[in-house]
């Protein structure tokens, strides 16, 4: 049986205590919510915290709440099952509910959280392997080694962002709430990630995600599509989140604002302004969709470190962008 290494387990009673522990122990400690990402990685010795700080139970991380300005606040500790099944969310933020529904498997969604999903470690099939396996390739840059096997000359790690909810959060222009011993702040989801397989989050390591805020659902529409080999279990090898706001005049009105996000290709989900530009000022049509898909295709540069051949993954950007945008017609 693959087993976890030994560690100290902390169950803080308050948010303040949680961030305090993390601050004091520094990199020796890691937060855990559902553990569906952290524990497998610890079993494979990809992550080796000596202290694990449970945060999923903290009160500040619970609940889905509508705020006075019509925006919505979702606690980072809610499970993906709740996120996918919540009736208000399904109505107001269907793309987010859909993304949550497409994560992993039913049992994993019962435990995995939104916060954990947003902070999900980047993935690479040279890295998501056991210690013994990685020893066979003399390890890699991201953990214990000094070469990136995906691009041997690359000074940085190219592991892939594999979260399903992050592209949607960026497309919806969500704000991420962060708390640390230094106080709290919010950052736009678009600024939360960085294109570096190792340091893939811009937040300070001791900052804890307490929740996200979603703008009021006033007229815009959004969608998410995911590509993977099987209809369940598998991480995305491509995720496209799309968001548009049209002017007055119904479905034929020109698109005023758009955001299209490319997930599971780079180390961070990437906003594609060129694709948005292809839509803006014109009504959504086969033609504009096709232009946007071309722009997305140009942008995508997948690496050979996930399932499927990278050339095919790149080719899939077009049909999948189309799929995501076609969902917004009508």
């Amino acid at each position: 049986m693959l087993r976890l290494p030994n560690f100290h387990y902390h169950v803080p009673e308050s948010l303040a205590e949680a961030v305090r522990i993390k601050k004091d122990l520094g990199p020796l400690a890691m937060f855990v919510a559902g553990g569906t990402d952290l524990y497998p990685k610890m079993k494979r010795r990809q992550q080796e915290p000596h202290h694990v700080v449970q945060i999923g139970h903290l009160e500040e991380l619970q609940g889905v709440r509508r705020l006075d300005d019509g925006s919505c606040r979702i606690g980072a500790g809610i499970t993906l099952t709740t996120l996918a099944g919540d009736t208000t969310l399904k109505r107001d933020y269907p793309a987010l509910a859909e993304a949550a529904h497409l994560v992993a498997s039913p049992q994993l969604r019962n435990v995995g959280t939104l916060g954990g999903n947003l902070c999900l470690d980047t993935r690479c099939n040279y890295y998501d392997q056991t210690y013994e396996w990685r020893k066979g390739i003399s390890f890699c840059l991201k953990k214990d080694g000094d070469t990136c096997w995906v691009a041997r000359s690359s000074p940085k790690c190219l592991a892939v962002t594999s979260t399903d909810t992050a592209p949607v959060a960026i497309a919806l222009a969500a704000e991420i709430e962060l708390v640390s011993t230094r106080g709290d702040r919010t950052v736009p989801a678009g600024d939360f990630y960085s294109n570096d397989g190792i340091r893939y989050l811009t937040k300070d390591p001791d900052e804890l995600v307490t929740g996200i805020r979603l703008p009021p659902p006033n007229g815009w529409r959004s969608s998410y599509v995911k590509l993977r080999r099987r209809g369940t279990f598998d991480f995305p090898v491509l995720g496209i989140a799309a968001w548009i706001r049209r002017g007055d005049g119904g479905t034929d009105a020109p698109v005023e604002e758009a955001r299209i996000v490319l997930g599971a290709v780079f180390s961070e989900p990437v906003l594609a302004p060129e694709a948005a530009d292809a839509l803006i000022g014109r009504p959504l049509s086969t033609e504009t969709i096709s232009d946007a898909a071309d722009a997305m295709y140009k942008l995508a540069k997948p690496m050979d470190n996930t399932d499927f051949l990278l050339s095919w993954r790149k080719e899939m950007v077009k049909p999948y962008t189309k799929k995501a945008l076609e969902k917004l017609i009508g």
């Binding site: 099939n125 080999r229 099987r230 209809g231 369940t232 279990f233 598998d234 399932d307």
Partner: peptide, 9 residues
């Protein structure tokens, strides 16, 4: 996860 065995889907 990586060796793909068909699921219910």
């Amino acid at each position: 996860l990586d060796y793909k065995s068909p699921t219910t889907h």
